[in-house]
Structure formats: C-alpha cells, structure tokens
C-alpha cells in the first residue's frame, strides 16, 4: 500500500516563499550553495557511503564475468539497481522495488586478473545539478531541499561532466525560461561539477593510498573526506575542494565567462554577509578550517564557529 506523503501547508509555503525573497534558506545556505557532501568508503572494496545534507546513500559495486551480447561483443553490461526504503519516505511504495536497468556502452568490465581486480574504466562522470526557479525565474536556488522543491515553479536539471559537456538537460514545471537564465545555470553548473568531480577524485585517491598502505591487513579503514563549511573566510586558498555554505568562491576558473559568474556569486555573498552574520548560527555549527580531513568534531568546535578565524 502506498502511503500518503505529508501535505504542505499554506503556512510553510508562504514562509518558504518569503524566505527565498529575503535570500534566505531554511538550512542556512546561500541561494547558490550546495549541501555538504561527505564521502566515506567501507572496509570492502566497492562499497561507499555518501551523505549530501540529510540524505544518505549507500552504494555497493559488484562484478562478474559473463558472455557479452552477441550484437555487441566488445561491450560489457551495466545494471543499476535502486532501492528506496519506505523508512526514508512514506511516499516510497512498500513491497516493490523500482528496477532500473541500463545497457550502456560507456562502462566496460575488465576480466579479473590473477589477484588484483582492475578498476572499471569510467570515461567520464556526468554529475547532475538541480536548479529551482521561483516567481517565474526571478529567484534561483541551487540544490533545493524537498520542501523547497514542493514550493517551486519549476526546475532544471543539468547533467554535465568535468569537460563541460552537457550530457542531459531537463526542464520541468510551468514556467518560461529565458536564454540568459539557461546559460547562467549552465555556468553555475560548470563550477559545481568541477568542485564535485574534484572532491570525488580526491576521496578516491585518498582511499587508494590508504588501501595501499594497509595491504592484506583487515584494518577497519574508514576514510572520510569532510567538506567544511566556511561562511566568512576571506583568506582562502584557491583550489581547496570545499563545498559549503556562503563564503567567497574558491573555484578554480580559467575561463573568462566563468570568472564573471564566480564574481557575481562573490558579490552576492558579500552583500549578504551582514545578513549572514545573523543567520549563521541558525544553520551551521561547523568550524571554519577547511583543510581538515578528519570527521571528529570536538564539542567546542561544534559550538564555536567564530573562534578559529
């Protein structure tokens, strides 16, 4: 039996709308901020846990050698299975498992050699960035939460890889988008995709190194890469892989157009800085250092957002 989802009350809708008009978000993020991403690898190879904001996903990769399809003898097969637990949302149907099967030619599975299995050859990683639009495109939010999605007029999902190739573009909702907006969104997407790709690569590199040191040992190896929140920190090194709330942009940009976008975001952030001081405690209790790679937060850190500056 499919359960009802909780309806959205008028009160919530009005509040979220007015908050967006005020350039504020319920979780203390700025309009163009992504949620915090944390990537953790499990003990076994091929298992990975990702936390994006309050959402947690566990992924497990496994492979076997089979006969390829007659029609495509040089290609492997890729199956993706998604399980949505009714514990996560009562709206997910109980007792049925939505199956998604993808036969692609992008991923090949190499045969397992003597001992070490070879990694899959992933040619490129498209990453989806969602934009929500409000009041006919007057306001724009990156990475909306479920409540923000319920209130929005429409959304655009841009799938892009780090080579700035748009792999998919989907627009839903009842609104008209101007050409400028689409371009602006794709520029923001470039920045976000670069960040996230770099983050994933860093996490993978760290994991590979850690596994290299501990070969053959059954250590409980949990490697985490915590992306720190940096609301007000001017002295930030370029290229530090951090995704967080507010703060000036630390994005690596080599294209003039992207520089413009970054500048624009920076100015937005600057103008919001005074307001941000107010809302800082509201959403984030993280500290301001961004080079940490551990996830242990002491009690003081949790409640001292200003101390470390």
């Amino acid at each position: 039996m499919k359960m009802r989802e909780t309806p959205l009350s008028n009160c919530e809708r009005d509040f979220i709308r007015s908050a967006i008009a005020d350039k504020k978000r319920l979780d203390g993020r700025q309009p163009y901020d992504y949620r915090k991403i944390k990537i953790t690898f499990g003990v076994d190879r091929g298992s990975c846990q990702v936390e994006i904001g309050e959402t947690r996903v566990l992924a497990q990769v496994s492979s076997e050698i089979t006969t390829p399809k007659q029609t495509r003898p040089s290609d492997g097969m890729l199956f993706i299975n998604v399980e949505l637990s009714p514990m996560a949302s009562p709206g997910f149907e109980v007792g049925r498992r939505p199956d998604v099967t993808v036969d692609g030619n992008e991923v090949k599975i190499h045969p397992v050699e003597e001992k070490d299995p070879l990694p899959l050859s992933v040619h490129h990683m498209p990453i989806c960035v969602t934009f929500a639009f409000y009041e006919q495109g007057k306001y724009l939010l990156v990475d909306p939460t479920d409540k923000e999605e319920k209130v929005m007029d429409g959304k655009m999902v841009v799938g892009m890889n780090k080579h700035r190739e748009i792999c998919s573009l989907q627009v839903t909702g009842q609104m008209l988008l101007l050409k400028d907006q689409v371009l602006r969104c794709s520029n923001i997407a470039v920045v976000k995709v670069t960040e996230i790709t770099e983050l994933i690569h860093n996490a993978l590199d760290n994991d590979r190194q850690a596994r290299g040191w501990e070969t053959g040992m059954q250590y409980f190896l949990v490697l985490s890469l915590l992306i720190r929140v940096s609301p007000v920190n001017e002295k930030k090194d370029k290229g530090v892989g951090s995704i967080g709330e507010g703060g000036p942009s630390a994005w690596e940009v080599d294209n003039e157009m992207e520089q413009e976008v970054a500048d624009e975001i920076q100015t937005v952030n600057k103008s919001d800085r005074s307001a941000e001081g107010n809302s800082r405690l509201s959403g984030n209790h993280g500290d301001d250092s961004e080079e940490e790679a551990t996830c242990t937060l002491s009690k003081d850190d949790l409640h001292n957002p200003t101390q470390l500056q």
Partner: peptide, 22 residues
C-alpha cells in the same frame, strides 16, 4: 522576522541530543 524564525527553528531541531548545559 524570517531570519529569527529560521534561527529558532534550527535551534530547536539542533537541541535534540543536547544536555541543558549545551
């Protein structure tokens, strides 16, 4: 104001596992 409301809401949600001192 909106920001005060958000701040109070987040303070309440954050206090779930806190002691009175915290």
């Amino acid at each position: 104001s909106v920001s005060e409301t958000i701040a109070i809401a987040n303070a309440i949600s954050a206090s779930e596992y806190m002691s009175n001192e915290q």
